[in-house]
Amino acid sequence: MISLRGIAVTYPGPPPVHALRSVDLDLDSGQHVAIVGPSGSGKSTLLNVLGLLDRPTAGVYQIDGTDVSRLPESDRTGIRGSRIGFVFQAFHLMPYRTAWENVAVAQLYRGVPARARRAAAAAALDLVGLSHRRDALPTTLSGGERQRVAIARALVNRPALMLCDEPTGNLDSANAAAVLDLLDGLRSEGLTIVVITHDAVVAARAQRTLAIHDGVLSEAVSHG
């Protein structure tokens, strides 16, 4: 479903930085993959490439058979909005907008009418167990609740791939466990999840762990 062949990212120097060196990766539907590695190893670059936020300098990146690494920017933006969901460590919720508005903004750029956006946002908040906080402002939500709103936002377009960058980095262990349980549930419904993390507990939840070092990706331990 998702396949990377010989993906490389080089930032022009001097001296040139090889952030990724010939990465090959295949992800099937419903897989939960953790990518671990020290800072500066190329984790974020890989996530940006997977999320179409960055363009590889070499290689082929296919989503459902389409080579998205060569598409024009406007097409990549459209795919990013419709096929990929992001969950960030810093949540990135709009502080002056309610929970449902923060979720509904994900469908804004797909031309979905407001009424349908509202209904979809309500359903997504339901899914993450926050239907009672629909009209709350992010500032009144706990950290765990905020991350669940962000996950609802990533889910509302029913993406093929969900990319999580340290999703529990700002959460205490209880909230982190709740968020990880939520991700497990989503994975069992067929969503492909890629989590970038430092945290061994988070990595242990994944079926598959990949380690990245100096831009080189390698299979770590398999959890089965």
Binding site: L53, V105, L108, Y109
Partner: peptide, 11 residues
């Protein structure tokens, strides 16, 4: 917020 909107498909 702008980065978020771009990641959500805003051109």
């Amino acid at each position: 917020e702008i980065g978020l909107r771009r990641s959500l498909g805003a051109r």
